[in-house]
Structures are given as structure tokens and as C-alpha cells.
Amino acid sequence: MDKILRDKKAICIFVAPALAMFVLVLVIPVIQMLYYSLCDYAALTPPSFVGLANYKKLFFKDSTFRIALKNSIFFMIFSAVTQQVIGLLLAVMLTNIPKGRNLFKNIYYLPCVLSSAALGLLWAFLFNPKIGINNLLAKFGIEGPLWLMESKGFIVLPMWVIAFVALWQYVGQNMMLYMAQITGISRDVYEASYIDGASKVKAFRYITLPLIKPMVITSLSLNCIGSLKFFDLVYNMTQGGPNHRTEVLATELYAEGFNYFKYGYASAISVVLLVMCLVVTLLVKKVIKVETYES
């Protein structure tokens, strides 16, 4: 058996197609991107090497980049905290109700499978000052704020709105992952704990929580990476406006690359983004130490 599983030729055959596509379509372009980030490259003229100039400008001169970085980090933290907590909460609630579990679960998960570009349009429409929520509020004599144009404060209102929509759309994902994990926990474990006189809260604290830890890592990493890469909703709801106040890294990257055609500069932003994704994933793994758990 061991010999079969160590068959080098078979391993190569199994891994080769996926690896080849990965290298050709992903790795080589990423290396190119690394190189471009060190170049002055204006779309239609050939790239010329300028060293770290793009990064210098990015970190020391570009106020939009600072806003984008701030918003991306805010967005990541907000999403991570709210989606984890609410996702887990929903999972616990749904696993504890006697009836309708599937119905609710399907409803909450539904937006996850829909195109965020389409949902972005829908929500932009709903937060429009004339036709959306404000129209409804006006019936009660409340003058709603300019949801997507308000520009005061450290984190501007539109950013909160977008973060809320993202929560609405993606919390189902976390809920699903946690539900999967919780339903996987054997019923006997709980019953034993009740016999020992444990309350439901205690059971949650001492049984559920430790046992879902591995899932926290998965779901938190996916969460963080997803929110750092986040593009569709922002692009469709505010396009980064007003005056770049809702810009996130991905939208700035897009604007620099495709509105201003500064490919070199945009590549530098991509590199920052990629590095942040890697760091965050490592951090998540380091911070939450996993005790190995086999069911």
C-alpha cells in the first residue's frame, strides 16, 4: 500500500494539470506584477524600471491610498467581528430551534449565491436619497441622511452602509460553516454534559466553542481575505466616492489601473494587497492555536 502511495510518477500526473494551469495563469502573471510594480508603466508605453519609486509615492504622497488602506482595514475588522459573531449566533440559534431550521437557513444564505454586482445595484438604489429608504422614512416624517454621500467622520457613513450590506450578503456563509461544524458534534457529548448538570450556556462555552475552533480559523481567514479583496459592492454602490472617501484597496487598484492606466502604480497596490492577505492569514493561524481534534 505504502509503495502505491509513494508512486512518484502518479503524483506527478495527478498534480501536473492543476499545477501547470496555476503556474501559467496565476504565478507568472503575479511575478510580472511584482516586476511592473517597480516600473513606470503607462499602459500603452513599454515599462521602464524605476526601482521603489511607486512604493515611495504610495506610502508617502498618496492620500487616497491612506484612505483606501484605512477603509480596507476597517472593513476587514468590521466584517470579521460582525460576521463571525452573528454567523455563530445564527448557527447556534438555528441548531436549537425545533422547526423551520432549513427554511431560515436557506433564506439567510440566499444572498451569498447571488451576484454582488446585481445586489450592489439594488442597494445603491435603495439608499438613493429620492427613491429608496429615505422615501419610506419621509412618510414617518424622518429626514434620512445621504447614505452614500455623507462624508464626515473618521469612517464615513457610506462605508458603514457598505459594510452593513456586505454583512447582509455574506453572514450566511459563516453561519453555514458553523452550522456544519456544530451539527457535526455528536449529540452524546451534549447529553453527557446535561447529565452532569451542565446548563445550555455552559455546554456552549465548554463544548461547542472549543470544538468549532478549527472552523473559526477557516471562516476567519476566508472572511479577512474576502474583505481585503472586496470590490463589487463598493464599485457598484459608490465607485469610491464622494472624493475617494469610500475607496478600498481593490477599487483604488482598479481606478489607478483602468481609469488612469498607471499599471506600474496599480501593480504596487496589488503587491500591498497580496502581502496584507498573506500576513492576515498567517496572523489568524498564529493567534488561534488549534488543539487537534478528531471526531
Binding site: N128, P129, K130, W147, L148, M149, P242
Partner: peptide, 9 residues
């Protein structure tokens, strides 16, 4: 609502 209205609106 000028701040939030689009061109069309």
C-alpha cells in the same frame, strides 16, 4: 438631495 442625486435624477 443634490449631493446624492445622479445626473439622470
Amino acid at each position: 438631495t443634490a449631493a446624492g442625486d445622479s445626473n439622470d435624477q
